[in-house]
């Protein structure tokens, strides 16, 4: 029996060479954007589950600027069935806590979603909190750092979670929220047919009203945390080139330095 799978993906800059203006705001306008690299693994895993559980459906959710349509289409080209962009000027400046409300309300609106997949983290905000936040918001189990889905049926999913000292295997009753690592699979490339289909697809855009959230509980002012300013990380200055004619001399001079700095 098939299940409805939702995959949350974020449109992020593909490059980290970002500029910061005088007010401490990040300038990403001119940069190329794409699917957050970690989310490609979540899409791929959804497609694999769909292939395994016949009759399943994969819906992509992306919250952000209207341009997020591009990443939703890219996911459709890979084989996702449907997608929605959740966008509203009222969402601007939402922190992770509020973004999790937007995403969980969207999942609820889709209605029959049994599995919600996330990437490990984004390459811009980088909190890696969204999986657990959405799980808690929905009152459902969540699990992050998943490196393998060992079993899935219409009622439960069994996964392996990568820990520092090994791997935990856990079984979650569906609906469940799962965040995957890059180790989980090797994402496919889009097919020509998929690209054609994606190009023609109309992607619905949902605003605050559509997902049933009051504009007063989203956005910058409603967020319990806020970015005050951003500064570029100061570049590291060049250090000391270790001198020596032979490997032995180089090694001796390096080890001397490491002794001075108490590493040896």
């Amino acid at each position: 029996m098939g299940i409805h799978i939702a995959v949350c993906i974020k449109r992020t800059p593909s490059s980290t060479s970002v500029a910061i203006d005088e007010s401490g705001q990040i300038q990403t306008a001119g940069l190329p954007h794409g699917i957050n690299p970690f989310d490609e693994y979540a899409i791929e895993e959804a497609l694999r589950i769909k292939e395994k559980l016949e009759g399943s459906k994969v819906t992509i959710i992306s919250a952000g600027a209207p341009e997020s349509e591009d990443v939703v289409k890219a996911a459709l080209a890979l084989g996702a069935d449907e997608g929605v962009v959740v966008t509203d000027p009222a969402f601007d400046g939402s922190d992770t806590m509020v973004t999790s409300l937007i995403l969980s309300k969207t999942v609820e609106k889709l209605g029959d979603v049994k599995l919600i997949l996330f990437g490990k983290q984004t390459n811009d905000g980088e909190s890696g909190h969204m999986t657990a936040l959405v799980g808690a918001r929905l009152g459902r189990p969540s699990i992050s750092a998943v490196r393998k889905v060992t079993d899935i049926d219409a009622d439960s999913i069994t996964v392996q979670r990568l820990m520092d000292d090994g791997a935990d295997t856990l079984k979650l009753n569906l609906p469940a929220v799962v965040g995957v690592t890059k180790e989980i699979n090797e994402p496919r490339l889009p097919s020509l047919k998929g690209k054609m289909r994606a190009k023609k697809a109309a992607i619905p855009k949902w605003g605050a009203g559509d997902i049933g959230v009051d504009a007063a509980v989203v956005g910058k002012d409603a967020s319990p945390t806020g970015v005050v300013k951003m500064e570029p990380v100061p570049a590291r200055t060049a250090g000391t080139a270790i001198t020596g004619e032979t490997p032995e001399e180089l090694a001796k001079n390096l080890v001397e330095k490491l002794k001075e700095t108490k590493f040896i």
Partner: peptide, 24 residues
């Protein structure tokens, strides 16, 4: 700590208690 443990549990606790959450 921002380990797998922290990233798994801290956000859920923040939601359950209606608080704020920040990472790293």
């Amino acid at each position: 700590s921002a380990s797998v443990y922290g990233r798994s549990v801290a956000p859920r606790v923040a939601v359950a208690l209606g608080g704020a959450v920040a990472s790293d």
